[in-house]
Design a protein around this nucleic acid. Structure first.
Length: 115
DNA sequence: GAATTGACGTTCT
DNA sequence: AAGAACGCCAATT
């Protein structure tokens, strides 16, 4: 019974780790969304926590710049050193951006569930 | 340690 | 169809 208790406690941290893993799977030149990652992890209503995980992952070397919101907007760009840093990272992979929005987002969108 | 704040997205009105 | 409410919960204040 203690085991079950700790399982619940550890679940939170596991979720964060799984977010990291999902992000590491995003192919270069593609993008995904916070909600898609949350769904892929079976926590459809925790998309917000995915964003929190991204903040924690900033120093982890993961390609978190490939994660945008469901409209394809670069909502996380303000957390980079420069205003244009996130956009530059994406453009370096061939992703075009206009007004903080990914062009052809529906075509570049990559769902972790369909790897 | 309580209250607020978000790199969000769905549901209810 | 537009807007408010709400679920989620780590991090910050």
């Amino acid at each position: 019974m203690f085991k079950a208790f700790f399982t619940v406690l550890n679940k939170k941290q596991d979720f964060i780790d799984q977010v990291y893993h999902a992000i590491s799977l995003i192919p270069p030149g593609r993008v995904t969304t916070y909600g898609a990652i949350a769904r892929a992890l079976g926590a459809a209503r925790s998309s917000r926590l995915v964003g929190t995980a991204c903040i924690m992952a900033q120093d982890s070397g993961l390609p978190i710049h490939r994660v945008v919101n469901r409209l394809g907007m670069l909502t996380g760009k303000q957390h980079y050193a420069t205003d244009t840093k996130m956009q530059q990272l994406l453009e370096a992979e061939g992703i075009q951006i206009r007004d903080d929005r990914v062009i052809d987002f529906d075509k570049l969108f990559w769902d972790p569930l369909m790897d």
